[in-house]
Simulated scan of single mutants.
Amino acid sequence: MLLRYLAYTLAVIWLIHTLWPEPARAQQSPAPVSQCQAIAEATPAATFVSFAAPQATLAAATDGEVTITYLGHSTFLIETPGGTSIATDYNGWFRTAAPPTVVTMNKAHSTHYTLTPDPAIRHVLHGWGDDGEPADHDLVVGDTYIRNVTTDIRSGFEGMEPNGNSIFIFEVAGLCIGHLGHLHHELDDSHYRQIGRLDILMVPVDGGLTMGAESMSRVASRLRAALILPMHRRGPPINDFLDMFGDDYDKSFAAGPSVKISLRTLPSKPLIYVLQGV
């Protein structure tokens, strides 16, 4: 009788344990997904992938405008519809009315970074690895997804330092915005795959401190952005860069340092737009 009772009790315990619902596990936020890469991969034959986005993506994009202001050298201030502000290649010299939410940096020269940023800046993103590994940024700040693709930079004695520079990519309001940083070499297919589609490209036009105008123009052409914003001009006239592009591109000089742009107002023909101050 006792054995039967014990067997019955164990069976009930086993049944309760088996059928009792497990406690809910904490749900982790899914990793951000790059729409710029996804759209580029979905339309490999597009001439200008900016305008080949699936309708679902266009419908999901906000109507808000992004404001891009040239502050100097390689520093732009990107202001998003959701109130996120980003300063590129931030060196602390070019001040904004309020500290940016995010700053990105590269280390080819001290004009592209600072080791003493304003403590009020919430996110300081180095384009180089601080732990011996390549920089790897993949974060969402407000309404903006920020990631990077590393490239090499020249170092002493004509050598190259692997992964010393980052191309930063900002995905916001349906737009894919890329900043080449202090790019020292032409990109290969793996770089282009990692970058994906770009609508807006910030490109150095110094004519040699980064790369010569011909090499840089090849990179800009391959990236197929609808709006190209020159930066980092030192020495050569801007026309040396503009002359590398034929009639497939419009060229225009802005009356001010800022441009307001949305997915719906991107130029239908690729435009090289020289903001005031460049």
Results as ranks from 00 to 15, higher is better:
Arg4Gln: 09
Arg4Val: 08
Tyr5Glu: 11
Tyr5Trp: 10
Tyr5Asn: 09
Leu10Trp: 11
Ala11Tyr: 05
Val12Cys: 08
Ile13Ala: 11
Trp14Lys: 07
Thr18Trp: 11
Leu19Gln: 12
Glu22Gln: 07
Pro23Lys: 09
Arg25Pro: 00
Arg25Ile: 01
Ala31Ser: 06
Ala42Glu: 12
Ala46Lys: 05
Thr47Gln: 15
Ala56Thr: 05
Ala56Tyr: 00
Thr57Lys: 01
Thr57Asn: 03
Ala59Lys: 13
Glu65Val: 05
Glu65Asp: 10
Val66Pro: 08
Thr67Asp: 10
Leu71His: 07
Gly72Val: 10
Phe76Thr: 06
Ile78Glu: 03
Glu79Arg: 09
Tyr90Lys: 05
Asn91Pro: 01
Phe94Met: 13
Thr96Lys: 05
Thr96His: 03
Thr96Cys: 03
Ala98Gly: 01
Lys107Arg: 14
Ala108Thr: 06
Tyr113Ile: 04
Leu115Pro: 00
Leu115Asp: 14
Thr116His: 11
Asp118His: 02
Asp118Pro: 02
Pro119Asp: 04
Val124Trp: 10
Gly127Phe: 06
Asp130Leu: 15
Asp131His: 04
Gly132Asn: 11
Val140Ile: 11
Val140Ala: 03
Gly142Ala: 06
Gly142Ile: 02
Asp143Trp: 10
Asp143Phe: 08
Tyr145His: 14
Thr150Leu: 02
Ile153Met: 10
Arg154Thr: 12
Ser155Trp: 13
Glu158Asn: 15
Gly159Glu: 12
Met160Gly: 00
Glu161Asn: 08
Gly164Leu: 09
Ile167Thr: 07
Val172Ile: 06
Cys176Met: 07
Gly178Tyr: 04
His179Asp: 13
His179Ile: 01
Leu180Trp: 02
His182Gln: 09
Leu183Gly: 01
Leu187Val: 02
Ser190Arg: 14
Tyr192Glu: 04
Tyr192Asn: 04
Leu198Phe: 09
Asp199Gln: 12
Ile200Gly: 10
Gly207Trp: 10
Met211Gln: 04
Ala213Thr: 05
Glu214Ile: 02
Met216Gly: 11
Val219Leu: 10
Ser221Lys: 09
Ser221Arg: 09
Ile228Ser: 04
Leu229Asp: 07
Met231Val: 07
Arg233Phe: 05
Arg233Val: 05
Arg234Thr: 14
Arg234Ile: 14
Pro236Cys: 08
Pro237Glu: 07
Ile238Asp: 00
Asp240Tyr: 10
Leu242Gly: 05
Met244His: 03
Gly246His: 11
Asp247Ser: 15
Lys251Tyr: 08
Phe253His: 13
Gly256Glu: 15
Pro257Cys: 03
Ser262Ala: 14
Arg264Trp: 06
Pro267Ala: 06
Ser268Tyr: 01
Pro270Met: 12
Ile272Val: 13
Val274Gly: 06
Gln276Trp: 04
Val278Cys: 11
